[in-house]
Design a protein around this nucleic acid. Structure first.
Lengths: 220, 220
DNA sequence: CGTTGCATTGAAATCCCTCAAGCGAGGTGG
DNA sequence: CCACCTCGCTTGAGGGATTTCAATGCAACG
């Protein structure tokens, strides 16, 4: 618990039973983090695994010269910070104010040692992350700015069930660092799509998917 | 065995005991594949897992318009084609002529159901792949052509223990598709590094790492 | 000895980035 | 209540890294 000694900073942890994955419930506690607050740091011992209860988190890597890359956004229900090694390989931060459930890793390890089906479900989490990373890889390696942005919009839309109105919980900088672009290119691409009538931009945190087929086409 | 009915095409499979990971030995068989031959296809049922015995394989994804991305090169000892789902998510091909060990997936599943420590080792394979993918992600998102090529050279060098002389088993096109560049950019970057005296290029399939510190610096 | 398949090189074009300014919403204080 | 500030987003102009297109080189092979 070292990292969270100073609980005043984070809001009081609340003990609870956390469903890590379907059918695997473990004792844990929830904490709230404010916008941009660090949840855990790269290289820190991976003593917990984390599950988003409310809000959105991001996992980030930063190069020495400041170039930043967001590997994933984590929405309600997503598990992150699961490691086989001793240390975290990313920094995790709150995108918006969020409530996060923490599960002590030894507790998870114990269940995994005993229960094959639980072990399988935990493995599936890693496998899922791998698939996402591989899709992301293809995106970054071979897709144009427009394709990246459109893919991103469809992805976010699929993860937040709101019809054609999509809320973007993250800033343009976050989107840019996720897509391997600059903030300006993201902005220009969005306004370009708006000019073509493909999307609407009532404000900078909301997108209306006016022409999904066109977006899907652009997402290639 | 449907996919490999036509064994004549591949060379006769040879039954053997395969070490999937340290301490997990399973019955399987080896087959040889010639340069550029397909080992398995995307969307095909994932009935086997694969381990490189000799040579090098690649896992590939292709977009409808022909853009290609290589997610990884697999060298001697590497396991690939491990899926939790029903189907492969990549195409796998032989980079050079290679000998591949195939393990029937049900055999693996049985061991994983019984033996927790084996399950853990198999999970570690997925976890390792995830780490590699995440490093690759950062490379593609935020690094320049020179940085990518230098990182690649160091990576290959680390995987083939030969001092400062590195053999490149793959073509320029393979390197380009792995690094998210074009073949011309890879070629230009290499000749640039040669002109600076950082590397030597006795021929297009061999690289001499003349100044490792400089390469490491360029790899950022 | 021509063919074929990479690899290299050059010139031009393009896409995205960099730098710089302007805009707008939200918050603060006079 | 409004001026002012701040922060994030947008927009523009210019530049640069990488791609594209095209030609040449080179080694292996029949």
């Amino acid at each position: 618990m070292q990292a969270y000694k100073d609980v005043a900073k984070f809001g009081a942890p609340a003990a609870a039973t956390i469903e890590v994955v379907a059918g695997v419930d473990l004792p844990g506690f929830t904490m709230t983090f404010s916008r941009n607050e660090e949840i855990f740091g790269e290289e820190e011992p991976a003593d917990f695994i984390y599950r988003v209860v409310e809000g959105v988190a991001r996992t980030v890597r930063i190069l020495s010269d400041g170039r930043r890359q967001i590997s994933a956004f984590h929405m309600a229900g997503d598990v992150f910070g699961l490691e086989m090694g001793e240390a975290h390989r990313f920094t995790a931060e709150a995108v918006s104010q969020c409530k996060i459930a923490l599960i002590r890793r030894p507790a998870l390890e114990r269940v995994v040692e005993r229960d094959i089906s639980a072990a399988r479900k935990v493995w599936a989490l890693t496998s899922r992350d791998l698939h996402d990373a591989q899709d992301h890889l293809l995106l970054l390696a071979r897709r144009s700015a427009t394709e990246r942005v459109c893919t991103f919009l469809l992805d976010i839309a699929a993860r937040s069930v709101r019809g054609d109105m999509v809320d973007l919980p993250m800033s343009r900088l976050d989107i840019a660092d996720y897509l391997g672009l600059t903030i300006e290119t993201v902005s220009r691409t969005l306004t370009q799509l708006e000019r073509e009538g493909t999307i609407g931009l009532p404000n900078c945190r909301q997108v209306v998917l006016r022409d999904r087929p066109a977006i899907a086409r652009d997402a290639a």
